[in-house]
Design a protein around this nucleic acid. Structure first.
Lengths: 159, 159
DNA sequence: ATAATAACCTAGTAATTTAGTCAATTATTA
DNA sequence: TAATAATTGACTAAATTACTAGGTTATTAT
């Protein structure tokens, strides 16, 4: 799991797609204009998003992209992992021959932490993002409007 | 908030520090050997960690680094934000003059999502990582051992 | 005192990733 | 048949990551 601007671009583009798809599919040219992302870069991103089954494409005039599934079946982690090549954070590359004294500590650590973050981001759906964005548009809120923290009911259960 | 290997190196190093500090401070040379991270790179990372008040240093022979606070006062997000220069994900750079039709959508979106992720990672403490690592060491567990999900008491309160 | 240790600092550099350009080809519709 | 828009591939500039090299300063042990 990486979290870079690349993944952000992808989420932004998917949100734009979700907000603008109606009867007609949405063109990358349109997303490019609205979100100020270069067309060719979008093409690269959507190539991956399509291969991962997150979007479908229609070629020719009047064509473009559609979200492949229901908006609440697509999570932020789905989008990010589709475009961000997942790298392997361990030195040993999965093998456990990294050091004299045994396997590298980082192996377990990052596998765990990765899992936690992924768990979390898979709980934030495209549907939520769309809903939140629509609310902001209607109210014409110009200041930063934090998403309601739906996980804030969590408590630290450590002793 | 970015999440790259740089931040991972930092968390790994901090965990090594926390596991190995006893009467004597821990040297970067030691961390470098155990975790296979270059000494000079560690120096750069610890320069930032020190400036952020996460570690204290002792110079000269027998010197090294110590964790500055209690282990449960340091979160993963603290460590990551200390070394990962936070970049501004919006095209407009905070100003809201980015587009004809108004401010860029990404502004609110990423401010919100950033906040959520940060919220989450600030709940994972160094103390938890240490405890988990110690358990693995004692049991000599060689397979991936996921951290107990202490935030799994969360419920989706949507609708 | 002096030598060894280890933090601290600065500058540079190779490898990788990001973000983008350019130039095509293919499928579809008007 | 022409226009549209996805699809593909190769190539490039900028940024970031990870690392090297070479010093300086503070502190301790001899």
């Amino acid at each position: 799991m990486r979290l870079t601007t690349k993944g952000r671009f992808a989420v932004t583009a998917m949100l734009d797609l979700a907000l603008n798809e109606a009867d007609k599919p949405v063109t990358l040219a349109g997303i490019s204009e609205r979100q100020a992302i270069s067309l060719s870069y979008l093409e690269q991103l959507f190539s991956r998003l399509r291969r991962q089954g997150l979007v479908t494409s229609v070629r020719g005039p009047g064509g473009g992209y559609r979200v492949a599934k229901s908006h609440n079946e697509i999570s932020v982690s789905n989008i990010i992992t589709a475009v961000d090549e997942l790298i392997d954070a361990t030195q040993c590359g999965g093998k456990e021959d990294c050091h004299d004294e045994g396997r590298c500590m980082t192996h377990d650590l990052w596998a765990s932490l990765n899992n936690r973050i992924l768990d979390y981001l898979s709980g934030v759906t495209l549907a939520e993002l769309v809903e939140n964005q629509r609310q902001n548009d209607i109210g014409n809120v110009s200041q930063i409007n934090f998403l309601p923290r739906k996980t804030s009911v969590c408590e630290d259960v450590t002793a």
